[in-house]
Amino acid sequence: MNVTLIAHTQLSDSFLASILDADVFEDVLDISDGQTVALTAIRTCYSPNRPSEIVALEGERYFKREATDGQGGTEADRLIRHIVSSKHLSTLEHISFTFAIEGVSRALLAQLTRHRVGFSYSVQSQRYVRFGSGDKSGGFDYVTPQMSEEAERMYKGIMSTLQLAYDELRKLGLPAENARMILPNAATTNLVMTANLRALLDFYSKRRKGRGAQAEITELAERLREAVVAAEPWTDAFFEQA
């Protein structure tokens, strides 16, 4: 399994220029784009100021003052903590992340795509991509779950047999869209997935280790969390609470 963060919410050049003109980021080096978007969305619900002006007019209050709830960080951190604890999570839907997810099983894909609200998927096709041994793919790859040595020998033997069967059916003229019917749930696929922060926190709360999910999807949950936190460090605490 490989998970790569392709893109995530970033401030536009014109909006960033308006903030810089207001000296909001002066002497402040750790304000992320996602946190800026979150503050703008949250304060839009309660402020008389226009959304385009909130950070310029209110940024000093929130980004340059220590949190008054005693939990560390800035007033912006406090405000986001308050919003999350009060379940006003629609404000986190404005922050999105796009991932390349590679080498996961079709079984995982079936579980993953049950998460619909706040997610978008583009998945490698078994209809248009041919998985014969002599095709560009070199045949289908597959995920091997944890099992005994004896079971693994049998498992790998079955996968080899299925590859041979797929190859033979293709030689007999069966189209790839029909030959794919014999490919197993273990067969790997690649996809691009975009999700907003609220959806990702909900996904993590359901699929993290210890919640009864299958091992492969719990690994995916952790990889997604790592990628999000690397891009937006302030989100780490909310994954912990999920």
Rank of each mutant, 00 (worst) to 15 (best):
M1V: 13
M1N: 13
N2M: 12
V3Q: 13
I6P: 12
Q10V: 14
F15A: 11
L16D: 14
S18L: 14
I19W: 08
I19M: 15
A22T: 08
V24H: 07
V24K: 09
F25Q: 11
E26W: 10
V28T: 13
I31N: 01
S32I: 03
G34F: 00
Q35G: 08
T36R: 01
A41I: 00
R43N: 06
Y46L: 11
R50T: 04
P51W: 10
I54H: 06
V55Q: 10
G59T: 00
R61E: 04
Y62Q: 10
F63Y: 12
F63K: 00
K64H: 10
T68S: 13
G70Y: 10
E75C: 13
E75Q: 15
D77P: 11
D77H: 15
R78V: 02
R78P: 05
R78K: 12
R78L: 07
L79G: 00
L79T: 01
V84A: 10
S86D: 15
K87T: 15
K87Y: 14
E93K: 11
H94N: 13
H94R: 10
I95H: 09
I95Y: 05
S96R: 14
S96I: 13
A107L: 09
Q111Y: 13
L112E: 03
T113E: 12
T113R: 14
T113I: 15
H115E: 13
V117T: 15
V117A: 07
V117P: 00
F119A: 04
F119P: 09
S120Q: 05
Y121W: 11
S122L: 12
Q126R: 04
R130F: 00
G132Q: 04
D141S: 14
D141G: 14
Y142F: 15
T144R: 07
P145V: 10
S148N: 07
S148H: 05
R153G: 15
R153Y: 03
T161N: 00
T161P: 00
Q163D: 09
Q163H: 02
L164F: 01
D167M: 13
D167Y: 08
E168K: 11
L169H: 01
L169D: 05
K171W: 00
K171V: 02
L172F: 04
L172V: 00
L174Y: 01
L174C: 12
A176F: 01
A179V: 06
A179F: 07
I182S: 01
P184N: 05
A187N: 04
T188W: 02
T188Y: 02
T189H: 02
T189Y: 12
T194M: 10
T194C: 06
N196D: 14
A199Y: 04
S205Q: 04
K206Y: 02
R207H: 09
R207Y: 03
G210S: 07
G212D: 06
E216C: 02
E216H: 09
I217C: 09
E219R: 14
L220G: 04
A221N: 06
R223T: 03
R223S: 13
R223D: 07
E226I: 07
A227N: 08
V228A: 05
V228P: 07
V228W: 13
V229W: 05
F238M: 09
F238C: 04
F239A: 05
